[in-house]
């Protein structure tokens, strides 16, 4: 039996490539439409984010000024719209917390990836995952009872920073662990086979390969830490002075957001909500900056490592 094609030639049925069945047409149509649908869904996802950013920027705009960002006068920060103290406080908290978290996460992650047996490594990973899954307020209470009360450090910069580091350690640990375990086994064996001791392998070969991932983990952990509020509120004391020691009180950006929504505007010249949005805007900007840095770094290093273990 022969049938004709749209071009008019007559072919045996087995050889005809055209298919007018409904099912095939539906499938082809679906393939075409899904190409439109997916970008549409992406728009649905992106619109709330853009709207959120616009909302925050618009609310913060009236009080955003260089003067407000750098002003550290006590009452300008408490009753006015100055956020200089909170910026410095956030910086101090993040610096100490990051230093501690990087130290713990890096050594812990490397030890787990390189030195521990599979069984102990599994235990360590499970514990770290549990830490990551602990509600932030619980961690905050732990910090309060351990650092503030038991160690007697009081509500302080160091208690807040150490509590904060608990949130960053799991992220850094996990990326470090993953970064070192995902180095191709033969690369590791080649280094050890060349007579390197494990630490020499880690320093000279492993770290350069794992570095971009580790750095990404550190920066994302910083972004995570930057957003934490409750645990630091529980372990620090708001202060109107620049921290002068590890025992000082400290004001930070997310505290201003939390506090701004908690009580009404007081007196002329003060607008707690605008200040809360000002702080929210700054947090957002820092998080975006961290992410941009991560992307640029990661892209640069990825290019550098092209050709590894091909």
């Amino acid at each position: 039996m022969a049938t004709s094609t749209p071009t008019g030639s007559v072919l045996p049925r087995d050889e005809v490539l055209f298919d007018r069945s409904l099912r095939t047409r539906w499938r082809l149509g679906f393939d075409r439409w899904i190409g439109w649908l997916l970008p549409l869904l992406f728009l649905v996802a992106i619109v709330p984010i853009v709207d959120l950013v616009y909302f925050v920027v618009r609310a913060a705009y009236p009080v955003l000024s260089w003067g407000n960002l750098t002003n550290t006068q006590p009452y300008a920060n408490q009753n006015g719209n100055a956020v200089g103290l909170a910026l410095i406080g956030t910086f101090d908290l993040m610096a100490i917390a990051t230093a501690v978290a990087v130290l713990l996460g890096l050594f812990g992650g490397i030890a787990t990836a390189e030195f521990l047996s599979e069984r102990s490594a599994g235990w360590v990973r499970t514990s770290v995952n549990m830490l990551a899954g602990t509600p932030s307020v619980v961690v905050g209470y732990f910090g309060y009872f351990a650092f503030v009360l038991y160690f007697g450090w009081g509500l302080s910069l160091i208690a807040g920073a150490l509590t904060l580091s608990f949130f960053m350690v799991p992220y850094i640990f996990r990326t470090v662990d993953l970064a070192y375990t995902s180095i191709p086994r033969p690369i590791r064996e080649a280094a050890l086979g060349s007579g390197a001791r494990p630490y020499q392998y880690i320093l000279k070969v492993g770290t350069p390969i794992a570095f971009p991932q580790v750095l990404t983990g550190v920066f994302l952990a910083m972004a995570i830490g930057l957003g934490e509020t409750a645990p630091i509120v529980l372990t620090t004391l708001p202060s109107l002075l620049v921290p002068s020691s590890l025992n000082s009180g400290v004001t930070f950006l997310t505290y201003l957001i939390y506090d701004g929504f908690n009580h009404p505007s007081t007196g002329p010249g003060s607008n707690e909500l605008a200040k809360a949005f000002e702080a929210a805007f700054l947090v957002m900007m820092i998080v975006i900056a961290l992410n941009v840095v991560v992307r640029v770094f990661a892209a640069r290093y990825k290019k550098r490592l092209e050709g590894l273990y091909q």
Binding site: L106, L203, V218, Y301
Partner: peptide
Amino acid sequence: IGTGIAIAIAVVLLLVGI
């Protein structure tokens, strides 16, 4: 690629921060 950069960054952050 320089080694130990990660540790260096942490230390620098600490110093710069404070």
